[in-house]
Design a protein around this nucleic acid. Structure first.
Length: 459
RNA sequence: GUCGCCUUCGUCUAUCGGUUAGGACCCAAGGUUUUCAUCCUUGUAAGAGGAGUUCGAUUCUCCUAGGCGAUACCA
């Protein structure tokens, strides 16, 4: 058994492509088969090396490892030419000299008449010979019905009269998509073609090609599309569509993968799947037929679940990228493991976590004005706090907590009246966890320094 | 326009003819908590519409509507 992911390098790896890759990958792993990565770069006009790299990076970040490839279609030109030659020799294809103008006029005419825009077979029986201005068209059967059993959609049938003679080689000799997929899927021994359902309409054409070549058909699985929140096909205007943009936004790859696998697939009521569980539980028969809308809130929830349950060490591994990016050094400060631990329950993304850990390693310039004017109005609690903290022997969170309580008791005020300004004094923005833990981690010197600054703050 | 595919809470989904139609996200309320967050409890909310088939349809069939896709010398 062998499946493949076959993106065209005309942009980065996007959400939809990643899910297609994930499903093809999961099915191959589940079947103990092989997963192939094939770059479909026959459109040399639009394909770029940058896109190839972006796709590879995305696959790598997601952890979708391939057993074979990456293969590049541009390296298979000779093979495609040979197949086209064979089709021509066997009378299953022909040269066509119709100009693009004639074709577009024809299209307009047909549409105006309310008919389906198709090539009219003008050159089909002309017996034209090779020349550099001609394309090669495949003689699609003119009658009968192509029927195939899609593993997710079920039985699909399209009449041959709805299909025209498709171009398999351009005027410059370059083969086109429908020919190259068939040739490569056959040559590589792909048994399961798993792709987006925008390819359903191409499938009967490809099946006709398989048959003309006397090749065995693979099994087809057409995945429903991923839509944006407005029901339109997911695109840039819905926000981030690139996989790497989610990395940049602080998502863990397994959270994204978990979210993606649940888009169009389910296993009872189970929501959280480890990579191993995805592989062992995945089944093509559980894939939905209907398109699904991308919902970032649920992704965020999953990401938080993963952050909460990960080990600090694992998070640090991922955090390093953001830390380097923002040039944050964590060497002069509390142990990163402890800081990360203190932030795990309160970070939806790694980016939030980075924001939260800054206060332990960097000083801030100003207090949040609105909060400071409120919290630092009354300096008495802070002054009392400082006085007592200075007398502390061991700088430990439980000791600090006791002191805060003492201040509360002495002044006859609630914990919030002391804890809140204390929190703001240390963080600058009020975003911090257990204040005693934070104070312990931040250290005596810095804590007292920041408290002093808070006391001097002029409302 | 034509062809194809699709249609359960706002969103992701369960249900393989008989259920008070279940779970998750979101939202709301309450509890725990030193704010927030976490955690716990509870709540709101769905079978596109219409015909059949059947003792019984969310589930099977057909029609309509809507959505998406394809109609490229893109993939």
């Amino acid at each position: 058994m062998k499946s493949r992911f076959a993106p065209s390098p005309t942009g980065c790896l996007h959400i939809g492509g990643a899910r297609t890759a994930l499903f093809a990958w999961a099915w191959a792993k589940k079947q103990k088969g092989s997963f192939v990565l094939r770059i479909e770069d026959t459109d040399v006009e639009r394909s770029t090396q940058k896109s190839v790299d972006a796709i590879l990076d995305g696959m790598n970040w997601l952890g979708l490892d391939y057993d074979e490839g990456p293969f590049y279609q541009t390296q298979h030109f000779e093979r495609y030419k040979a197949v086209i030659r064979q089709l021509l020799d066997e009378g299953k294809s022909y040269y066509c000299e119709c100009s693009k103008e004639r074709l577009s006029n024809l299209r307009e005419e047909l549409i105006a008449k309310g008919e389906k825009a198709m090539y009219d077979g003008c050159c089909r029986n002309k017996g034209l010979s090779f020349d550099h201005h001609k394309v090669v068209r495949f003689k699609n059967p003119t009658n009968g019905v192509v029927v195939f059993n899609d593993a997710v959609k079920g039985k699909i049938s399209i009449a041959n009269k709805e299909l025209d003679d498709l171009i398999i080689a351009r005027t410059d000799g370059m083969p086109t998509y429908n020919l190259t997929v068939v040739v490569d899927d056959h040559d590589m021994g792909i048994t399961h073609v798993i792709r987006g359902d925008d390819h359903i309409n191409n499938t009967p054409r490809q099946i006709n090609l398989y048959q003309a070549l006397n090749w065995n058909l693979p099994e087809f699985s057409h995945l429903p599309m991923i839509l944006g929140s407005d029901g339109a096909r997911l695109s840039k205007r819905h926000g981030a569509v690139s996989v790497m943009a989610y990395r940049d936004a602080g998502f863990l790859p397994e959270a994204l993968l978990n979210y993606l696998v649940r888009l169009g697939w389910s296993h009872g009521d189970k929501e959280v799947f480890s990579l191993d569980e995805i592989v062992s539980l995945f089944d093509l028969k559980d894939i939905n037929k209907a398109p699904a809308s991308f919902n970032e809130e649920k992704l965020l929830w999953l990401n938080q679940e993963y952050i909460k349950n990960a080990t600090p060490e694992y998070l640090i591994k991922h955090l390093e990228w953001y830390l380097n990016n923002q040039e944050i050094s964590t060497h002069n400060g509390p142990a990163l493991v402890l800081v990360v631990e203190s932030l795990q329950q309160r970070s939806k993304t790694l980016l939030e976590m980075v924001e939260g850990l800054k206060m332990f390693y960097q000083d801030f310039d100003v207090f949040d004005e609105e909060l400071a004017n409120k919290q630092f109005q009354d300096k008495v609690p802070l002054k009392a706090l400082v006085k007592k903290l200075k007398q502390l022997d061991t700088w430990k969170s439980d000791e600090i907590k006791i002191i805060i309580k003492q201040v509360c008791d002495e002044l006859g005020i609630g914990f919030g009246k002391v804890g809140q300004p204390f929190r703001l004094a240390l963080s600058g923005n009020g975003n911090a966890g257990n204040i005693d833990t934070v104070a312990e981690l931040i250290g005596e010197e810095t804590t007292l320094k920041r408290l002093d600054r808070a006391i001097k703050y002029e409302c």
